[in-house]
């Protein structure tokens, strides 16, 4: 089981994502942004950070990198792709996920432990019952998800997770960035491409806090291995 972790210039959580993949028993493969070759990996993670400095717009430049052409083709073939934080922004900019991510409602960077309710099953949430509340850290300045028809998105099973309070109640109090319908993550229609603002790769080691990220990352490993 080999999981590619894309390294853009300005990626910050690439080492964390690769480490989390290893913690979960798979082999991380660093994919360089300038190479179009995906090294035959079974899944791809686009990590957090500030790719290309996030100049112009978050993720706007990264989508033009050679690796993203290959990631797009891999996704269209049904390959599992997860974008976390900046990776989510890149996937939206690349048109692989619906919607867009804009400046946080509070106009400040937000870093905190966050409760997130899983809403739909996809390859990245295969082992998690919808309604499960996960504790995952968020840390971002541009995390406010926008989409013209969030209800239609939910009906189509494309809302992966929503921000909530620790009891699973979705409301403004638990929403760190003003995302529409408190959406924390979405998938494409096929369910193989997912984007999340919270960081599952920072929640895999009990020494460092929550281990709920294992459920998300572990699901895809199990699915691909099967």
């Amino acid at each position: 089981m080999r999981v590619g972790v894309v390294q853009f210039p300005g990626s910050c959580d690439d080492r964390d994502a690769a480490w989390a993949v290893r913690v979960l028993g798979a082999e991380p493969v660093v994919l360089w942004h300038g190479d179009a070759w995906l090294a035959g990996v079974d899944a791809v993670v686009l990590p957090g950070g500030f790719s290309y400095g996030d100049y112009l717009r978050s993720g706007a430049l990264a989508r033009f990198s050679p690796v993203m052409g290959s990631v797009g083709a891999f996704a269209r073939r049904g390959g599992p792709v997860l974008g976390v934080c900046n990776g989510f922004q890149v996937l939206c900019e690349a048109g692989l996920l619906p919607g867009a991510l804009t400046r946080n409602a509070g106009l400040r960077f937000v870093a905190r432990d966050q409760s997130v309710r899983v809403e739909a099953r996809c390859v990245w949430t295969a082992g998690i019952r919808p309604g499960t509340v996960l504790a995952l850290p968020v840390k971002h300045g541009d995390g406010r998800y926008v989409h013209p028809e969030p209800d239609a998105l939910a009906t189509g099973g494309q809302v992966l997770a929503r921000y909530c309070d620790p009891d699973g109640v979705v409301g403004t109090a638990g929403n760190p960035n003003g995302s529409v319908a408190a959406i924390a993550g979405v998938t494409n229609a096929a369910g193989n491409v997912a984007g999340l603002m919270p960081h599952p790769e920072h929640a895999v080691d009990p020494l460092l806090g929550s281990t709920d990220g294992r459920l998300l990352l572990g699901a895809v490993l199990a699915a691909v291995a099967a």
Binding site: C12, R15, R108, V110, A111, R112, K139
Partner: peptide
């Protein structure tokens, strides 16, 4: 400190 990333680098 809620405006700072304290986690990166695991």
């Amino acid at each position: 400190w809620e405006q700072y990333d304290s986690l990166v680098g695991h």
